[in-house]
């Protein structure tokens, strides 16, 4: 089983659409489409494990802007297949093949 982690922040043109804040954009700045493949090949587990994986592999600096304790920092919305993760079991959600995970930060100006 593997899941595609759309960190939702890459690909120049999609930035506005994905509405990821510069904050997260910065955190994920190393990602490109190849990493998606990389992620989809390597990742198995639940959301809790995914956050640990992201922290270890994708966040090079200031992880506190993304994670707090073992969950995401309050104010960052998580969508699993375009549905609020609060409906999906949050950290316990078991990732499945082809899942799309989107992180949207609300922690910036309007």
């Amino acid at each position: 089983m593997s899941a595609c982690v759309w960190a939702a922040c890459v690909c120049g043109t999609q930035i506005c659409y994905c509405s990821l804040s510069a904050e997260i954009l910065l955190l994920f700045s190393g990602i490109n489409e190849n990493v998606y493949e990389h992620v989809s090949m390597w990742f198995t587990g639940n959301m809790k494990q995914l956050l640990v994986w992201i922290q270890r592999n994708l966040l090079k600096e200031r992880p506190e802007l993304f994670v707090q304790g073992d969950t995401v920092r309050p104010g960052i919305l998580v969508l699993i297949n375009d549905a609020d993760w609060e409906l999906m079991g949050e950290l316990d959600y078991q990732l499945e093949d082809q899942d799309n995970i989107v992180f949207i930060s609300t922690l910036h100006g309007g």
Partner: peptide, 17 residues
Amino acid sequence: IVLYAYFKKLDYFSTEC
């Protein structure tokens, strides 16, 4: 508000000053 904009695919700008 964020999810409304996201699901409606509204065109907005999101960068910190």
